[in-house]
Design a protein around this nucleic acid. Structure first.
Lengths: 156, 156
DNA sequence: CTAAGATAGGCAACTACGTTGTCCATATAG
DNA sequence: CTATATGGACAACGTAGTTGCCTATCTTAG
């Protein structure tokens, strides 16, 4: 007879593991010249992508209102991670693009995440980690960028 | 040679899986007579426990300031999940206790989480799920209630 | 026994990140 | 050329945090 595992532990551990990875990422990014970046900003910059986007489009991608997306863009612009230019083809649109500083943050994030994953693989073994990832993928189908929440992480 | 798995997928899937479980929990709680409860409230009520606590103590347990804990308690009191009484031994202290309605929410949450875990076990197999839980436990040691963030879920 | 310090709680002002609602400017279609 | 759709911005608000400060009460030292 296998022992009972309470169901509430799973969501708690999932959140704890997420927070752990994100906290380690941002501690490392802080050391690498990006002290002001916030966890959300990384997700937003990923969603902006190399070709740029607009507030409305970004909102749709992330599942928030265009106003919320606009405010986040404003913040990112203020701290130097993105810049806005008016689309010459449609002067209503303002195209948001990553600055070189923003690209740097994104590149470094990807490298740090790879390092953290390698640390997990060293602790659990590559095979077990792949099973873990595969199981999570199975339970959470679809595009990982569309967090679809709304309130990407917070406002629970 | 095994194929490359990008490190950024792991945190994303962890968050997605967490959100999925929490969203399903609250959809079900809504159906069971608790439409106004918010995800955070469940965590806070768990932290309050059957014997009650105080704002300062609750703040320490959850890793937030006493003011933040106080505000949350205020909200929970307003919607009928907790009640406050002054400690006769120390009239500075106000003891926060779950109401029967609050206990009901907590009981139902536990049952729903068990059901959701059973659904995962049916999909992945009990053994794989136990491995997943064990791996997460290994990577996130310590008391799961101490989220230690600060900003329990949000404010990333 | 009183003065000094520690602790509990509350208030105010602020930040971050979301929401609705409203409005204007510009594109596009009939 | 007018009607409609779209992109962006502004205001007001809600929720969940923060810091700083203040008062009341309990505890401890002289």
């Amino acid at each position: 007879m296998s022992s009972y595992v309470p169901g509430f532990e799973l969501p708690l551990r999932l959140l704890l593991a997420f927070r752990l990875l994100i906290d380690e990422l941002h501690a490392e990014l802080g050391r690498q010249g990006h002290p002001d970046i916030r966890p959300m900003h990384g997700f937003v910059m990923q969603a902006i992508g190399p070709d740029g986007t607009t507030a409305v489009e970004l909102g749709r991608t992330l599942g928030v209102t265009k106003q919320a997306a606009g405010k986040t863009i404003e913040t990112l612009e203020r701290i130097g991670y993105v810049e806005r230019t008016t689309d010459p083809q449609d002067t209503r649109r303002k195209i948001v693009r990553l600055t070189p500083y923003g690209m740097d943050a994104l590149d470094r994030s990807a490298r740090v995440f790879d390092t953290l994953r390698a640390r997990w693989a060293a602790e659990l073994g590559e095979e077990r980690l792949r099973e873990l990832e595969s199981d999570l993928r199975r339970m959470t189908p679809g595009n990982p960028w569309r967090l679809d929440t709304p309130g990407w992480f917070g406002n629970l």
